[in-house]
């Protein structure tokens, strides 16, 4: 069963992920522009949220690659780079909607980043993703060396935690979704450092 799944996955090219998410991002923007479906009344916050939540989901999927291989022998390794880079571009889109469409002035964007802890944390997450996206190519892996590259890319963990805290922090009242995301992300990272479960070093 799993062998068949893996061999099927081998035939799927990783670049498909870029195509699918580029199309999805454009499609959601088009819906927001035309006020379709959930965008009918107030499209700006909905678009901001839609991009942000998808980026968070991709970060979770990226963190799932290693455990899926260890526990279920499902091999998604070749997609991981595309998943991570796509997450970065969605966070960029999320930030651009926030800055250009929502807050609408550079000065106010800066004020928000400095003054509002939940925006600060979100920005830390975004900034942390920049070196990861920039070194997500074979040339960089060779240049930095596999060990150094793997060390650098452990930045994914604080990036994911900051993203979860950002989501938790902006909710009004007690809301379930951010708590679930946070629990999953913290769980997936803790699993990597739990001595009994993860003796082998994990990327």
């Amino acid at each position: 069963m799993i062998d068949r799944l893996n061999s099927a996955l081998r035939r799927v090219p990783a670049w498909l992920i870029y195509i699918v998410f580029a199309a999805w991002t454009g499609w959601e923007f088009w819906k927001a522009l035309t006020g379709a479906g959930p965008y009918a009344v107030e499209p700006i916050n909905v678009l901001e949220r839609t991009y942000g939540e998808m980026a968070l989901k991709l970060l979770v999927v990226g963190l799932l690659v290693t455990p899926l291989r260890r526990w279920f022998s499902i091999n998604l390794m070749k997609f991981r780079r595309a998943i991570g880079v796509t997450a970065f571009f969605l966070v960029l889109a999320h930030f651009l909607v926030f800055a250009v469409l929502d807050v609408q002035s550079l000065e106010r964007v800066w004020t928000e980043i400095i003054k509002r802890p939940y925006v600060t944390v979100g920005m830390l997450s975004f900034v942390g993703l920049i070196p990861l996206a920039m070194t997500s190519n074979n040339w960089s892996v060779r240049k930095i060396g596999a060990a150094g590259w793997r060390k650098l890319h452990k930045l994914t963990y604080p990036v994911a935690v900051f993203a979860a805290v950002h989501y938790l922090w902006l909710a009004k009242g007690f809301q379930l979704e951010p708590v679930i995301y946070t629990a999953i992300i913290v769980g997936l990272i803790a699993w990597r450092y739990w001595p009994k479960l993860g003796q082998v070093s994990r990327a």
Binding site: G35, E42, D102, E112, K115
Partner: peptide, 22 residues
């Protein structure tokens, strides 16, 4: 007086579409 998590200086009137000004 700002809300601790966001500014109250401006607002966006609902219904202005994707490029509604504050």
């Amino acid at each position: 007086v700002d809300h601790p998590r966001w500014s109250q200086a401006t607002e966006r009137k609902i219904g202005g579409g994707l490029f509604a000004a504050r």
